[in-house]
């Protein structure tokens, strides 16, 4: 009969009206957590052997650490270990990768904070009394870093050259000397523009030429307007 379904539904809600309620009264009543619950990721710094597996396995670059060597035994030790929880996905990959079970998930799930920095955890093991050796030269400085230094030196030299003798320095990127002079006029003493051009001249000549041309055209336009 039409309406019997509605009555059945009403019966169900009526039954539940008197039933025991299922919601959890949270701050007073604590949730039941299972052993594998993934709360805050924690590190046991004593167990860490500074192998770097965790950093390699993390998809989101949550983990990072700094290290040093002991002076006598040349053993690596942890100087600081940072877990930036705001990017963590609780995927367990780092925990599985750690060979010494140094990483683990605690059952702590209440970590509201007022600042983003406060979500970070930094471990700084107590290393007093140990003689440390900063990582040997070359071990830390990668080839990349060296290249960067070299580039910086080159750029500085170029900036100096442009300031000293603009016509000669700039003629490398423009066609004629006149244009070079004009360009130097346009650049004036706008440090940021000079720096940009110098950087490009060191790293990518072609691009520098293009940028120089753009500067020139812009300058000419301004002249015409003014």
């Amino acid at each position: 009969m039409w309406g019997s379904g509605i009555l059945k539904g009403l019966g169900i809600t009526f039954k539940h009206l008197w039933e025991r309620k299922i919601t959890e009264q949270y701050p007073e009543e604590r949730p039941k957590l299972y052993p594998r619950f993934r709360g805050r990721l924690m590190l046991n710094p004593e167990k860490c052997i500074v192998c770097g597996m965790c950093v390699k396995s993390c998809p989101n670059n949550v983990l990072s650490f700094t290290e040093a060597r002991l002076k006598e035994s040349k053993k690596k030790v942890l100087t600081s270990y940072t877990i930036d929880h705001q990017y963590c996905m609780f995927c367990n990959l780092c925990v599985e990768a750690c060979p010494t079970n140094g990483l683990y998930f605690s059952h702590d799930f209440e970590w509201a904070a007022f600042k983003r920095e406060d979500i970070k955890t930094v471990y700084e093991p107590d290393l007093t009394g140990l003689e440390l050796l900063a990582l040997e030269e070359g071990e830390k400085k990668s080839a990349e870093k060296e290249a960067e230094d070299k580039l910086l030196k080159g750029v500085n030299a170029m900036i100096a050259a442009i300031k000293k003798n603009p016509a000669r320095a700039l003629s490398k990127v423009v066609e004629s000397e006149e244009e070079a002079l004009k360009l130097s006029e346009i650049l004036g003493d706008d440090e940021s523009k000079i720096k940009k051009l110098a950087e490009l001249m060191v790293s990518d000549k072609e691009k520098a030429a293009k940028v120089a041309k753009a500067f020139l055209i812009k300058g000419q336009k301004k002249e015409q307007e003014g």
């Binding site: 809600t13 539940h16 009206l17 008197w18 039933e19 309620k21 299922i22 919601t23 009264q25």
Partner: peptide, 13 residues
């Protein structure tokens, strides 16, 4: 309250 009880909640408390 009533809607809460029907939905197995406690409602405002």
């Amino acid at each position: 309250k009533i809607s809460g009880f029907i939905q197995l909640r406690l409602g405002p408390n």
